[in-house]
Amino acid sequence: MTAVALPEPMTAPTPSYVADPDVALAAAGDRRAFERLYRQHVTRVFSLCVRMVIDRTRAEELTQDVFVRAWEKLHLFRGESAFGTWLHRMTVNVVLNARKSEGRNRSRFEDDDEGDGVDLLPSRPLAPGDRMDLEAAIAKLPPGARRVFTLHDVEGYKHEEIAEMLGVTSGATKAQLHRARLLLREALNR
């Protein structure tokens, strides 16, 4: 008797909402389930916050804001994407909204590096010693370049997504990214 290979049953992809029971429990108001989600995702949320704003204390405040907001909005999560993806996007929004809020109070003389002009630095010869690690070099970037670099090269967002988040063109984010990489190279090779 020959074995007949049966076709794979057609199944819809399991939504992450269903795949992660803690998400469903937390959405129903289970605080312990939400705490488990917090423990699972806090380092990734904090990493994004701290790389976007540099100040660790501020990043911790923003991380708390993200989870409070996630608790408030969890009933809107439909499981169309992974919970981590949803939370990550929320993190970006919280950080950028905080930046806008703080920007209103900031002096106009403080340069936020928001323009799309690319101030290309001359390539310098490699100098031995006094090398900076990548994390420290990212912290030294101008805010605009740092945000785009973090979102693109660290977090993996596409230029179109970043442009939408920041309210700029994708051409501008490409220019900022190139600038950031050149500045990083300079810092790393100094």
Partner: peptide, 14 residues
């Protein structure tokens, strides 16, 4: 950059 490790807050934020 894609291989950078996750960073941990200095305290429990929960």
């Amino acid at each position: 950059a894609a291989a950078l490790p996750a960073l941990t807050p200095s305290r429990d934020l929960w």
